[in-house]
Nucleic acid binder design. Sequence first.
DNA 1: AAAGTGCATACAAACGATTGCACTCGGAGG
DNA 2: CCTCCGAGTGCAATCGTTTGTATGCACTTT
Lengths: 334, 334
Amino acid sequence: MNNIKDVARLAGVSASTVSRALSDKACVSDETRERIRQAAAELNYSPNVIAKSLKMGRTNTIALLLPSIRNHIFPEIASGVEDEARRCGVTVILCNTDEDERIEKEYLAKLRAQWVDGVIVSTMKPGSDHIRKLRDEGFPIVLTSRYYGDDGFDAVAVDNFGAARGAVDYLIKRGHKRIAVALGSGELNIYKDRFRGYRQALTDNGLAFDEALVLHDSGAADDLYFKVQTLFSFGPAPDALFATNDPKAIIALRAIRDVGLRVPQDVSVLGFDNIELSAMLEPPLTTVSQPFYQMGALAMKKLLCQIEAKEAGKPYRPRVNLMDTELIIRKSTR
Amino acid sequence: MNNIKDVARLAGVSASTVSRALSDKACVSDETRERIRQAAAELNYSPNVIAKSLKMGRTNTIALLLPSIRNHIFPEIASGVEDEARRCGVTVILCNTDEDERIEKEYLAKLRAQWVDGVIVSTMKPGSDHIRKLRDEGFPIVLTSRYYGDDGFDAVAVDNFGAARGAVDYLIKRGHKRIAVALGSGELNIYKDRFRGYRQALTDNGLAFDEALVLHDSGAADDLYFKVQTLFSFGPAPDALFATNDPKAIIALRAIRDVGLRVPQDVSVLGFDNIELSAMLEPPLTTVSQPFYQMGALAMKKLLCQIEAKEAGKPYRPRVNLMDTELIIRKSTR
DNA sequence: AAAGTGCATACAAACGATTGCACTCGGAGG
DNA sequence: CCTCCGAGTGCAATCGTTTGTATGCACTTT
């Protein structure tokens, strides 16, 4: 690989002039600049990014911390982040934590070490104090999707409470009275909020909350499948089910069909997230759509603002951006 | 951020001693080493990776070039790459080209500039001369999934020809005689190979090839859907369809059902790739499974070998590893 | 007692870029 | 004729590491 000195030698100037010429600074005569350009082209020269980063104290790289890239929603977020990043000349490092806090810490330790200018975090949990600590050190961070409103993080998310409330309200307005709910991991606020929305919709419409209709998530593989089967096989079956995310809705769909009930004629099923797959099911799933791609892109924009503010020594006021969700009505609800 | 000199000052030694102590070199007394450790801990010091990379000429970072992270199979590959990378202390940069050669070139230009030690490429096409050029410069590269056997690349892939042949042979053995085929982009060898496998299976079993049963891919959104509907609505309907990837199988499933035929009673549908979703369909899809995760992990291992060989100045003999596929028999074939 | 040995440590030169400062040089103004 | 100016360029320091070489010192060896 050729370096700046090789170019300088070939063009018959000093390295500093090459640097100035190629980064379009003033103070270089047109004739010299052209000569340098040609020399650089001839040597197939491109500046060493590592050296530049060291000198400039900025890598133009950011990291995206994801719980799992196989989780359907995260590739969409990642897409948005990446496209926006490319537009801004920023590279993205993908960090997959597999929901494992040890791995997350490992990554963050690396990131602190001048790896990246900032980080977008989708792995926030109530106990993620190491992330708070990093933020307190002045490290630029934007949360996406999973956030906790109360602690002054910069974040992009949706109003899970409102969206769930609206969706369940829709079910009730269409005549459903016994609505089961499949919960997600109780650790995550997004699921707690969706559950709160569910309860609020019941209250709004004068329906009683029934603990027997709540399916808790154990995380185990077929657990939800059997719970749904049990719920719909014995006693008075619910006339609808609200799954707090689409994968759960898909499992529920299968379980309900497998006990001999029809969707939507006997039971309506409502999902959350609108993953690509949900439109391809039989029947296609009614669900709440989140603008994941746009959330990723916005998170990237905000992160860049933070980085620039930090560089310029200006203050930056973090805020939470709540994006609009949309209830996508398909064929799984009647 | 504290640097090595701060640690040196606090511990009352020189920077070089700190460096040696922390990287567990010999020639540092235990007492000094301990003092340095404590100083480092006290200052919350971690070595600046950028500076280290510059000095060492190695970043311990590799890039993964993907056509699209939203494509189901790539997150699996990426997972394998990442897990293996983490095990080896390597970081992965994710580069999403969106099948756009301009973006790909942009990335590769960056990568050349000492960004990364090597790259895993899933975007190879017959016309990808810029990738060949990079290889010829001595840049460590491993191809995954998409490869072209003839040009001496290091690669991890499956025997698409053999797998397709075996799968279609299975259909024929189960009594199917008129088997349609839904092709993928003709530009990519993987689809050409699967098509060759299909034809070979016909020949093996003494069946005639019928051009009328071939559905070409235009790439347009609903194109395949309508082509399948047309094929199954007029004239003698095929009794089976081999889709050269699962998303096409899913579309075909829908189209076939929508013209009033039942899968698998009237028509068998066979996919390729075994994406997660294929098990969740109604009926669950019979398909050829590729070990994507393992392919990613192996590609990472091979890349590391290449990098190490290059560093040590040793020769490295690239070879193509073909992994085993498996025909997963579910309910979409009778 | 002089020389040799080996360990622990410090010094300084890289790695490849950027940039403040100093220098040169031709022309304008006093 | 001297000074001043500004444009164009070069020198050298710097970013934070690693590492080859030199140094100092306490011992042993002859």
